[in-house]
Write a protein that binds this DNA or RNA. Structure first.
Lengths: 152, 152
DNA sequence: GATGAAACTGTGGTGCA
DNA sequence: TGCACCACAGTTTCATC
């Protein structure tokens, strides 16, 4: 796989706004509409472009509380790890979950309505998963930056 | 602002795939194409839908290393805070940055090619920002879950 | 990668409940 | 206010060069 400069520019444009017409893109890139169409198809087929999604304003859908939650398991047997990861992936409040190096095993990004809902999430959902040793939560005071755009 | 069940279903569908035609959406929702079109326009105008973007496979664009980086400032004067936030927002390697509660002031999600590039990022970019007291990095071993879909 | 044609979709007007 | 129907302009998509 090799991406030339045109591919990279195209990816940059589509990461910013994927609803642009091929005609608009063709103007920026100095190509024909078909050439743009074929490059996009190529990038999709190569799996460089995963999918196209609508991003919402979380405050407007009443989800204003973001927290990062560290989790440590009591043990690290494969059984426990697999089970925890499967259960946590099911929780819709958990937008992201990573297995990380350091004092804790996992870091989770959790999105809920408010502090009260976060408490409910912790008590009734997260800590209901077995084999969790300890957790440590950090609350987001302010979102400084949040982008889905990868520099290519 | 009030979102009915149809709006919520529509948001769920568009968060999964925003390239679906209004016709396909109208079939799922049991509405006419125009009705779907008008609801989407409404959600855009209300600012519920922020934008439409292409999501990339980070491995396919040679960005396989994710790290979370805690940052503490030496002081918390407004001047220092504003300056740090402005500088960090400019760094393309930083996908997310949050001001958080707890021992550290900020948590950053950093995406680069590999460990070596991370080192370069830390030495030549992040710690070049003034007034940083200390940092603490955690490396992602495995991505368990990563979604942009907010449950509505 | 360009051109041109066919099929389809987005978009806005009008009317109905 | 919200939806359905209709029609046109513009877009996607594909065959051909």
């Amino acid at each position: 796989m090799h991406l030339d400069q045109t591919d990279k520019t195209l990816l940059k444009l589509l990461q910013k706004d994927c609803k642009q017409t091929n005609k608009a893109l063709s103007n920026v890139l100095g190509l024909s509409v078909t050439a743009v169409y074929e490059r996009i198809r190529k990038l999709e087929n190569l799996g460089v472009i995963n999918n196209y999604v609508a991003l919402l304003n979380k405050e407007r859908v009443d989800k204003s509380f973001v927290a990062f939650c560290h989790v440590k398991l009591v043990q690290h047997s494969q059984d426990y790890v697999v089970k925890f990861e499967r259960e946590v992936a099911k929780l819709q409040e958990v937008l992201e979950c990573y297995h990380i190096s350091g004092d804790y095993d996992y870091i989770l990004k959790v999105l809920v309505k408010d502090m009260q809902e976060f408490r409910t999430f912790m008590v009734e959902k997260l800590t209901k998963i077995n084999h969790i040793g300890s957790t440590h939560s950090m609350f987001v005071i302010n979102e400084v930056k949040h982008t889905t755009t990868i520099s290519v």
